[in-house]
Write a protein that binds this DNA or RNA. Structure first.
Lengths: 210, 210
DNA sequence: ATAAAGAAGTAACTATTGTTACAGAGATGT
DNA sequence: ACATCTCTGTAACAATAGTTACTTCTTTAT
């Protein structure tokens, strides 16, 4: 754990804090597709990502989903932080997008470190800032763009996160994450293929680089 | 200033912190409709609302707007906080919705107090939590609801913020804030009137209570 | 008093997105 | 090899939202 910790957070935190983290943090490995937190659950610890990626989702009244953003290594979950502090329930669902390694920090430590370490405070504020901006980005996409543009953005983002230009997923999956229907996704994917942006095959979509 | 400060933040902060705020804070009065911060501007101080209300807006590439949420007394702007700390530009526009009184706190103090006062830390985290949830709410509205439902929510929220059940505004104004067109708003308002939810007059909309 | 500007109502049309239904292609299990 | 299930493609249609155009009614300015 210590090496992965140093690699991802070494430049951010002083060695004293790194030691504390290594001391009280619990390493957790979550395989792709597994749920990390569910809407309505209480959060008792805060995750620091070491590797992999996590997708963060919102749910509507019918149980349908909408992708908010991805967390990657070096990130933490702003939502979780506020939930920890405020003792409130989670407003979001988090699912491992890839096999993921994270360090779980108990809530009390989080509060303690915020008073004690300036670097930790900065990290927490930075995290909020990033997450906030990602939410604004999500709002931009939904409010200002048509579904075809949202779809292309989504595909390119997914390529960035998974580091593979061929995505192994189904149209139905994409429809869930964009909160639309499978038929619409198939239709627009075909349109994007005709435009030369992507190549379609069963269970796979190759996204052509820019 | 001291009385207004005590009234809004007296239960939140210890008296030592309240004194510091009164000491370094600068009272600012912003009349209705006046701009407080513009997209792309740097932020050098952080606002604490004493009275009134502020609307926070996002802009698309064509210069059209979208209302994100309102800030009310006792609130502060999460965006401003992160901007202050990170020395980045504002991602949003803020305009006084009502005549508004606020205390401006210099950035350096903010950083200092976060290390020094536990109550200040809690306030900052609480603020983030609220703003985050409001953004999620906004996303829910845009992604999960039709324009007629968004419109009714908007009207009711406006009633809450202004504390008047008759809104003095134009259809065009509403269209800007919901990022749609005047014709659509007129159409849906008429529909809501027929449903008995509101009563329409020139420059005014009476929202019937639930 | 009259012209001009602003606000609202409405019709007709277009564009986008969502829904239903069905067919064919590919994978999987026995 | 066969039945079954999953995934994709498409057509046809419905619902929602955006656009253009024109009218009427108020308010404001000269």
């Amino acid at each position: 754990m210590t090496e992965a910790l140093k690699e991802n957070y070494g430049t951010l935190f002083e060695s004293e804090l790194l030691e504390e983290i290594a001391d009280v943090g619990v390493l957790k490995e979550v395989p792709e597709g597994h749920k990390i937190i569910e809407i309505g659950e209480y959060v008792r610890s805060m995750p620091l990502l070491l590797s992999g990626a996590i997708k963060v989702l919102r749910e509507d009244n019918d149980g349908d989903e909408l992708l908010l953003y991805f967390l990657e290594k070096g990130d933490t979950c702003a939502m979780t932080m506020t939930c920890c502090m405020g003792q409130t329930k989670s407003e979001i669902r988090a699912i491992a997008e890839l096999d993921t390694q994270l360090i779980m920090i108990p809530v009390q430590k989080m509060e303690e470190w915020t008073g004690k370490y300036r670097s930790w405070r900065n990290f927490v504020f930075e995290s909020y800032h990033h997450r906030f901006n990602e939410l604004l980005d999500t709002i931009d996409s939904i409010a200002f763009f048509n579904m075809d543009e949202r779809l292309l953005k989504y595909l390119r983002n997914k390529v960035k996160v998974t580091r593979e230009d061929t995505l192994h997923t189904t149209h139905q999956e994409i429809a869930y994450e964009l909160h639309t229907s499978r038929v619409v996704v198939s239709r627009l994917l075909k349109k994007l293929e005709n435009l030369g942006e992507i190549e379609l095959n069963r269970n796979s979509i190759k996204v052509n680089s820019l």
